[in-house]
């Protein structure tokens, strides 16, 4: 920042920033057309391969439904009561695991980032657990938790925890010493520094961690549902395979993608609402 201030003092920083934002927000029409055409071509290739039952030896499209089959199946599912039950079950599990991870990740992250003792106590065990993929937890989770519902929420929690935790630790440690000194010289105690300075300063990074965590939460949930679920969108996808409803497999996949994307967008939107000071691309 200081280098930029030396070159372009005062308010001179604002205009170029605003311009580049506009350029990012709205693509020229020609590029939009190109991008839409690319999607169309992809669909066309899928349609041709599936309808011609293309067999390349290494891969075969014999059992792959065409886009039209998938659209019909999606339409049917949209009008069936099953949709609400599956989506509702998955959303409840993801929200449960994600919220638990949010509370634990931010809480542990702040403790580790701000207290040496907490860091020494908590970091080594967490570092041992961190490289274990959430999916590898599934057998043990089924043994530990009497209800399969709880074991799936736990798997989701495991997936979401680490991105949130690590982003929180990093920013809590990096809290600007100058800001902390400022706060102290204005009369802030330890609790006020944490509440008024460290947490708000770490918030942008926590939101990023939460958005990544939301993505991993869906990834882990779907896997867990395929193995031990009853209801849920992962279960639906796997069930469609075992019942040979091949059209529904792709419907399930697309639904998982949509839900995952939608909830990451929701997390980021909630983050922006909570951080009015970064709106319009302010310094973070």
């Amino acid at each position: 920042m200081s280098a930029a201030t030396l070159e372009a003092p005062g308010a001179a920083l604002a205009p170029p920033k605003a311009e580049s934002r506009r350029a990012q927000g709205r693509l020229p029409l020609r590029r939009l057309v190109t991008r839409a055409a690319a999607l169309g071509l992809g669909l066309l290739a899928w349609h041709l391969a599936a309808s011609q039952k293309l067999d390349l030896g290494l891969v075969t499209f014999r059992n792959v439904p065409t886009p039209a089959d998938v659209a019909r199946a999606a339409w049917a599912l949209a009008h069936s009561p099953k949709l609400g039950a599956h989506v509702g079950a998955s959303l409840a599990r993801v929200l449960g695991g994600f919220m638990a991870a949010l509370v634990a990740g931010i809480g542990l992250g702040l403790a580790i980032g701000r207290s040496r003792l907490a860091g020494d106590l908590l970091l080594p065990p967490l570092e041992v657990l961190r490289p274990i993929p959430a999916v590898a937890w599934i057998p043990l989770a089924i043994l530990i938790f009497p209800s399969s519902e709880a074991s799936m929420v736990f798997i989701t929690f495991t997936g979401a925890l680490f991105p949130i935790l690590l982003n929180t630790v990093h920013e809590a440690e990096a809290a600007s010493p100058r800001l902390v000194a400022s706060a102290r010289s204005l009369g802030a105690g330890r609790a006020a520094i944490l509440r008024e300075v460290v947490i708000p300063a770490a918030l942008p990074s926590i939101v990023t961690g939460a958005a990544i965590g939301m993505g991993t939460a869906w990834f882990c949930l779907v896997t867990a549902e395929m193995i031990s679920g009853q209801y849920g969108i992962g279960y639906f996808t796997w069930e469609s395979y075992t019942l040979q409803n091949y059209d529904d497999i792709v419907v399930g996949m697309l639904l998982i993608g949509l839900l995952g994307m939608g909830s990451s967008v929701a997390v980021r939107a909630a983050g922006r609402l909570a951080m009015p000071w970064t709106r319009a691309g302010g310094r973070s």
């Binding site: 600007s176 100058r178 400022s182 951080m275």
Partner: peptide, 16 residues
Amino acid sequence: GPDRGVVFQAAALFDW
């Protein structure tokens, strides 16, 4: 203490 407040070089404002 607040009876000896410090003005820092880069203002060190609370951006939030």
